[in-house]
């Protein structure tokens, strides 16, 4: 089934985006990314360790020429810091497609939507293609779309919580009202959560902790790949209407008497 995933002017084979944080080491990260089939991974921008000249680099394990790097603004709590990080990220390798996240506080890592909207406006003006981590708020998502975001990434639940998607109605209505891709970012805890996101009609899913913190991350990476595909195919196939009463699968005609 040919079903390319388009974000702005970019096209991807996989609808699963994988985060590269929290793994034991870069070797495990690379194996998990491979098993997941993802062709886009999120990455963070941090200082080079100038004291350890031989410290391994993510780029030595995941080739940015083969897998698209999606630089994020993890750990930024205001618009100014997020802009600084993304301008650096773009200069590093010409990456125009970025993931903006402006956080509200350390306990919930919930997005600060006022700062997020402000920052999106500036990034669009600076010709970035911005994918935006946001609350599961249909109004905020529409505002981001109107500002020129290339994708909205509403949270299923708190980052790293594994609590899945408790508010499916919001995700569904966000998707119904969006002209740009909707990607569930944050909260996915197991493969079925990813399927649910896709069955709600989402265009993609971003998963990090659920893979990295599974007991067998590489196996979970493959499970996520299959779950995203299954959920997508299930959605595309046109899911049956639910009924409150039973409906027999076998005809009553020609029953023996």
């Amino acid at each position: 089934m040919k079903d390319h995933f388009k974000v702005g002017r970019y096209s991807f084979k996989s609808r699963l985006i994988v985060g590269t944080g929290k793994y034991k080491n870069f070797s495990e990260t690379a194996k998990a990314v491979k098993a997941s089939g993802a062709d886009m991974v999120t990455v963070a921008v941090r200082r080079v360790n100038v004291l350890d000249k031989n410290e391994p680099l993510l780029m030595d394990y995941i080739n940015p020429k083969k897998i698209r790097y999606l630089p994020n603004t993890a750990g930024c709590f205001n618009s100014e810091d997020a802009l600084r990080v993304l301008r650096l990220a773009r200069e590093s390798g010409g990456w125009n497609l970025v993931k903006l996240e402006v956080l509200g506080d350390k306990e919930t890592l919930y997005p600060n939507m006022a700062e997020t909207l402000k920052c999106t406006k500036i990034l669009v003006k600076e010709k970035f293609d911005v994918m935006v981590y946001c609350s599961d708020d249909p109004i905020a998502c529409k505002q981001l779309e109107d500002l020129g975001a290339v994708a909205v990434m509403p949270l299923g639940s708190f980052i790293g919580s594994g609590n899945g998607i408790p508010n499916k109605n919001n995700i569904k209505i966000i998707k119904q009202r969006s002209k740009i891709p909707v990607i569930v970012d944050a909260g996915i805890g197991c493969a079925s959560d990813a399927s649910v996101a896709m069955e709600l009609g989402c265009d993609g899913v971003l998963v990090n902790t659920a893979i990295a913190k599974a007991k067998k991350p590489i196996l979970m990476a493959e499970a996520m790949k299959l779950a995203v595909n299954a959920g997508r195919m299930s959605y595309l196939s046109g899911i049956m209407t639910r009924s409150e009463v039973a409906s027999n699968s076998t005809t009553h005609k020609r029953k023996i008497k």
């Binding site: 985060g19 590269t20 944080g21 929290k22 793994y23 870069f26 990260t29 999120t42 990455v43 963070a44 921008v45 941090r46 200082r47 080079v48 100038v50 680099l57 993510l58 780029m59 790097y69 630089p71 994020n72 993890a74 650096l88 990220a89 200069e91 590093s92 980052i159 790293g160 971003l206 990090n208 902790t209």
Partner: peptide, 26 residues
């Protein structure tokens, strides 16, 4: 600092320089 200026760029005393790379992140 754009990459094309890496050869010509000259530092001044007490310049605050940040050299960053990509690390794992979600």
């Amino acid at each position: 600092v754009p990459k094309e200026k890496y050869k010509s760029f000259k530092f001044k005393n007490n310049d605050k320089v940040e050299v960053v790379t990509f690390i794992g992140g979600g």
